[in-house]
Write a protein that binds this DNA or RNA. Structure first.
Length: 857
RNA sequence: GGGGAAGUGGCGGAAUGGCAGACGCAGCCGCCUCAAAAGCGGCCGAGGCAACUCAUGUGGGUUCGAGUCCCACCUUCCCCA
């Protein structure tokens, strides 16, 4: 490493008596105050662990505070990007403890998932062994960071003790009809060889490996999240502690739209075609029907048309079969084929040609769309391309445009109806109600609501996950495994090759007996989506060793809801939506009480770059926790991560930046440690009597920092960058004071206060100083320093004097100055003569204790 | 195309509608040292000898007073399509 830190060398050598060249005396003098962060940090971590500093127990006397960082996947090694997230959470946890709350701050592992299987395929390591060794390493690294987790509550989702409750919860969902199996076109990732939920397909690609997903018809397990669509939507209204954009994303994902569903008769057949539209006011403008080629009614249509047309339809469907949703709706041109069949318009009776197209998907809405080119952009493009008529039925209100006037683009806004029979002249909104009512009267339609949200596909054809507790019996069919047979253990000896489902090829796992009739039967070989585990883990922390239930109701009552949740915004519609769904289900079952939302407040931390670039192994710019702890110290690392930007912003790890915080830690040490013996006296806790302006300013700096800590924590803004800036000012003032008046009560008061202020951010040096001051008990068990008005008040303020809004003078005066005194003093100011003499003061403004403004004309 | 967030020194950033640039980084000067590092002290938006003037993406507006509020535009990022 070319860049060797001076203080690291000092730290290493401090214990060695003589070092080359330097006389022992000079050496001792120079090194006396050196801060040996490595040994000291290590020692405190061990002591906190021994003392159970972070172990949480219910306590009726103190208000509870549940702060939680998103459960990490144990990928192997932590870097400073991960550290940012955990540092924010730990600063909050430590601050809240010192502010008197009973803090619960647990940690665990989202331990099932594909990377463990990939390690098995590539390196022949068993997924369990790989995962457990990663957990051991990451647990060590989290401890190294000085985080205050209650490790007695640690969980790993891949243990039978945890996943048996996955199975148990799955069965409860199954009993209530919320888990079901059906065949459907689903997203298939060819690389991971498994299906994916809609939420796990980002821009048509697998969220894990970025491979374009394919469509396949498969029989899969789903959870009926759509049953909760309205409640998931309505609940967002009250989540004031969530970022607005996350709520908006969930709203958009649920995608509720009010409209009408009705059907078109097919000319020459008994079947009908259902369509959904939010714009039923444009129904007289329908000039074609567009079907997804997979739509069931296509079979019927093929019977109505000549064989060559039927063959063309099949060929068209075949060409789209494996194309992803993204390709079909966004990337490809709008393709279509006239089937040769016609539908009958339900109101006008007109014959409407039926087309199959790539841009209508079988899985959305009804799989059929009424084509209104005059008033929908996609329909307009399609009609232009295929020379279909464009019939205008809405005109801008107040315009006299004729229905047959040619248009250059679709008019998609509301307006007034024309060419719409009895509905002519109606405004769009009224027409939507009237036409829906007319369709209902004729018995062919209804006003209805549509959602974009689909049911959650939870089965995976992979090994390293929770086995789904279902058995298939010839006689009894699909049979749920009884609770007393749980857990269904994941067999350790499945063949993991990356091809096909490992469990499906393991007879010792598959072959079983029917729980109902005892006949030979087959187990379900699919495992659960790992998002299943992470949708309820925050409850397991509350009662982690319970063997009779996933958690006891009393435990949930004592600790829920999560007061502050911290994690990346990439989970806005995945984990955060699934968890809300589960929690509402638990609420319905009576397993939790209180609000039916799991996370009262949500905080998304910003990314961390390294020297302006995204950290990645391929770039070779990953800054590891271990190296940083050794080189710079953990306290400096934590301070830097909190200081560099507000926590929600993207920040940049730089060598210069971390250096600045290393210097800060050393300055703290040099200012406080030499006075440790004198900071022991009892009277340093009371506000000191200050004799000079500098002393007054020093004590004020201490209380400004104390106030910032309380405000940033209690406001839930967590902009600790500003708190640490106040600490910088405190240490700057203290460094000067130590040089000038090391024995003054103000100096000793500040020296004593520093560890209390520093504790949430730099916990090690805070406790080390505290113990050197003579305290037996950890500083982290002390109450935070309460900001005091007496210390914050200024003896003298600077009154700014403006003329017409421009600063023309500054006057020192007492803070208690009255409005009339302020005007009097300002008008007497010689510097203002030039601006005021001979002019009329038309108005005067006074901002108490701050500013006077004269408006002259 | 629609929606949202943000644009402040060389850099990261600070600023309940009231002294723009706190604090840090980088840089420059000095002290200490045989010397260097570390440390300590000072300077550090632009123009001007100065009084002052200009300056928070651009252009308008509200206000005694706007980085902050409103409108339009430009740029960047995020989400949706």
């Amino acid at each position: 490493m070319p860049f060797l830190h001076a203080n690291r060398c000092v730290g290493k050598h401090a214990a060695t008596p003589a070092v080359g060249g330097l006389a022992p005396v000079a050496y001792a003098k120079q090194m006396a105050a050196a801060y040996d962060f490595q040994d000291i940090e290590q020692r405190w971590r061990e002591r906190w662990e021994r003392d159970g500093l972070a172990v949480a127990r219910p306590d009726a006397k103190r208000e509870k505070y549940y702060v939680l960082e998103m459960l990490p996947y144990p990928s192997g090694d932590l870097h400073v990007g991960h550290a940012k997230n955990y540092t924010i959470g730990d600063a909050i946890a430590r601050s809240m403890r010192m502010l008197g709350y009973n803090v619960l701050h647990p940690m665990g592992w989202d331990a099932f998932g594909l990377p463990a299987e990939n390690a098995a395929i590539q390196r022949g390591i068993a997924p369990a062994a790989w995962t457990l060794s990663n957990i051991a390493n990451m647990r060590r690294q989290l401890r190294l960071m000085g985080t205050s987790y209650d490790w007695s509550r640690e969980i790993a989702t891949c243990t039978p003790e945890y996943y048996r409750w996955n199975q148990w919860l799955f069965l409860r969902l199954y009993e209530r009809g919320l888990a079901y199996k059906r065949e459907a076109p689903v997203n298939w990732c060819p690389k991971d060889a498994t299906v994916l939920a809609n939420e796990q397909v980002i821009d048509g690609r697998c969220w894990r490996c970025d491979t374009p997903v394919e469509r396949r018809n498969l029989s899969q397990w789903f959870l009926r999240i759509t049953e909760y669509a309205d409640r998931l939507l309505d609940g967002l209204e009250h989540l004031d502690g969530w970022p607005e954009r996350t709520r908006t994303m969930q709203r958009n994902w649920i995608g509720k739209s009010e409209g009408a569903q009705f059907s078109f008769a097919i000319d020459g057949a008994d079947e009908r075609i259902e369509v959904f539209t939010t714009r039923v006011d444009t129904v007289y403008g329908v000039t074609f029907l567009a079907l997804a080629p997979e739509h069931p009614v296509v079979t019927c249509i093929k019977g109505l048309v000549p064989p060559e047309s039927a063959r063309a339809i099949d060929a068209f469907a075949e060409s789209l079969r494996s194309k992803s949703e993204l390709e079909r709706t966004s990337l490809m041109e709008k393709q279509g084929l006239f089937t040769g069949a016609y539908a009958i318009h339900p109101l006008s009776g007109a014959r409407v040609p039926i087309w199959v197209t790539n841009y209508v998907l079988a899985e959305y809405g009804t799989g059929a769309v009424m084509g209104v080119p005059a008033h929908d952009e996609r329909d307009f493009d399609f009609a232009r391309k295929h020379a279909l008529p464009i019939v205008r039925v809405i005109v801008p209100t107040g315009s006299s445009l004729a229905a047959d006037a040619p248009s250059a683009e679709a008019f998609v806004e509301d307006g007034t109806l024309v060419g719409s029979g009895a509905f002519d002249g109606m405004p769009s909104a009224e027409a939507r109600r009237a036409i829906a009512a007319e369709l209902a009267r004729r018995g062919i339609g209804n006003a209805t609501t549509n959602y974009r949200l689909r049911d959650w596909l939870v089965s995976r054809q992979r090994y390293w996950g929770t086995p789904i507790p279902i058995v298939y019996c010839e006689a009894c069919g699909e049979v749920p495994v009884p609770d007393e047979q749980l857990p269904i253990l994941l067999p350790p000896d499945a063949p993991i090759t990356g091809e096909g489902s490992p469990l499906a090829r393991l007879p010792s796992f598959i072959e079983t007996r029917c729980p109902k009739c005892g006949a030979p039967a087959r187990r379900e070989s699919d495992t659960m989506d790992t998002f299943f585990e992470s949708s309820w883990y925050y409850l397991r922390y509350l009662d982690p060793r319970n063997e009779r239930a996933p958690w006891a109701r009393e435990a949930a009552d004592a600790w829920m809801n999560v007061d502050q949740y911290i994690g990346g915004s990439e989970h806005a519609v995945l984990h955060l939506l699934y968890s809300r769904f589960f929690y509402k289900f638990f609420h319905d079952c009576g397993w939790v009480s209180g609000p039916d939302e799991p996370f009262a407040r949500l905080f998304h931390q910003g990314m961390l770059l390294a020297n302006g670039e995204k950290m990645s192994k391929s770039r070779g710019n990953v800054v590891g926790i271990d190296e940083t702890a050794e080189k710079n110290g953990v306290d400096a690392m934590r301070l830097f991560l909190l200081y560099v930007t507000p926590p929600e912003d993207t920040s940049d790890w730089t060598d210069e930046g971390i250096n600045g915080r290393v210097r800060f830690v050393n300055r703290v040490w040099r200012a406080c440690e030499p006075l440790a013996a004198r900071a022991r006296s009892a009277d340093v806790r009371a506000l000191p009597v200050c004799t000079t302006p500098d002393e007054k300013a020093l004590v004020r700096a201490v209380h400004l920092a104390a106030r910032s800590l309380v405000e940033e924590t209690m406001s839930r803004r967590f902009h600790y960058n500003t708190t640490i800036a106040r600490l910088d000012e405190t240490i700057n003032a203290l460094t000067t004071a130590v040089g000038v008046a090391p024995d003054s009560p103000a100096t000793l008061y500040a020296v004593h206060a520093v560890p209390l202020l520093l504790a949430p951010f730099a916990p090690h040096i805070a406790d080390e100083l505290w113990s050197r001051y003579g305290y037996e008990r950890s500083v982290h068990l002390e109450a935070a320093l309460a900001p005091e008005e007496a210390a914050l008040a200024l003896d003298e303020i600077t009154l700014v004097v403006q003329v017409n809004g421009k600063v023309r003078a500054r006057i020192a005066c007492a803070p208690s100055i009255s409005e009339s005194e302020a005007f009097e003093l300002a008008e007497a100011e010689p510097a203002l003569r030039v601006y005021l003499d001979g002019k009329e003061v038309r108005k005067r403004f006074y901002v108490p204790g701050k500013l006077v403004n004269f408006v002259v004309g």
